[in-house]
């Protein structure tokens, strides 16, 4: 709360942004009730779920990950690697930015609104799969982003990190079914991205059977483990002015 004006401005712009996004969805669904198999409330539920994932990622993980390339560039990792703790944990979770918590609130609000319109609000299965889906989605979102940040240990300068974040969060905000154009080539390209928000949403909306959840959890753990291996490999290549 040190910079209060900044905090409230942030909250204000965040809510304006949510309203714009909802307005845009209203425009799209003015023309049809169904875009590539998704109804309006189902898209709302997905948008809400991904906002919730962002609400967990942005305040607790994002500020740390965004600072990785800059710290590599300036050689500030020397001390961290000397500490007797897991270096991936320290570089991912040390700093928090609470002004970004707004997404968590608006995300949950949109999800609850959509679920009540879909008559799923009292359904225990929905809430259970939603909770697990959001945790898996956050871990995968983190892993993918962390993977790109780890690249900076090899390239030394990487300043386009915010743009990279924009690309990813733009992609995950929509059901991947809409993005494939029914084309085989794009489908193969896009489907791996579905694991962040589309597949979890399909599970809690009951669009695909519940056993996909087991697959989702398995893939989440696999990706997390692979990214961790990559990080371990990368830091062995880390060099700074003094090491």
């Amino acid at each position: 709360m040190e910079f209060r004006a900044n905090f409230f401005l942030h909250a204000f712009f965040d809510s304006v942004w949510v309203l714009v996004q909802i307005g845009v969805l209203q425009v799209y669904f003015q023309y049809t009730n169904d875009i590539s198999g998704w109804t309006k409330m189902e898209v709302f539920a997905l948008v809400g779920a991904f906002r919730t994932i962002k609400g967990l990622f942005d305040p607790f993980l994002r500020p740390n990950l965004l600072s990785i390339p800059g710290r590599v560039n300036r050689g500030q990792f020397d001390y961290i690697f000397a500490w007797p703790v897991n270096s991936q944990f320290v570089v991912s979770c040390a700093k928090h930015l609470y002004s970004d918590l707004g997404s968590l609130v608006s995300g949950l609000a949109i999800t609850i609104y959509a679920l009540s319109n879909l008559n799923l609000i009292g359904n225990f299965y929905t809430w259970l799969t939603l909770g697990i889906g959001i945790i898996c989605g956050t871990v995968i979102f983190y892993s993918i982003f962390f993977f790109f940040m780890t690249f900076s240990l090899f390239t030394v300068r990487l300043s386009a990190t915010k743009s990279l974040y924009d690309i990813l969060s733009n992609l995950f905000r929509w059901p991947t079914d809409i993005l494939t154009f029914g084309n085989r080539f794009t489908e193969a390209l896009i489907v791996p991205l579905a694991i962040v928000s589309t597949i979890p949403s399909k599970i809690f909306l009951g669009k695909i059977p519940g056993y996909y959840l087991v697959l989702e959890i398995f893939i989440t753990m696999l990706i997390f483990a692979l990214v961790n291996r990559f990080w371990q490999f990368a830091i062995r290549h880390y060099t700074s002015a003094s090491s």
Binding site: R157, L158, S159, A160, S163, L164, D166, I167
Partner: peptide, 9 residues
């Protein structure tokens, strides 16, 4: 790499 990411975004 930077420019490529800027363009892609």
């Amino acid at each position: 790499t930077d420019i490529l990411i800027f363009v892609l975004s």
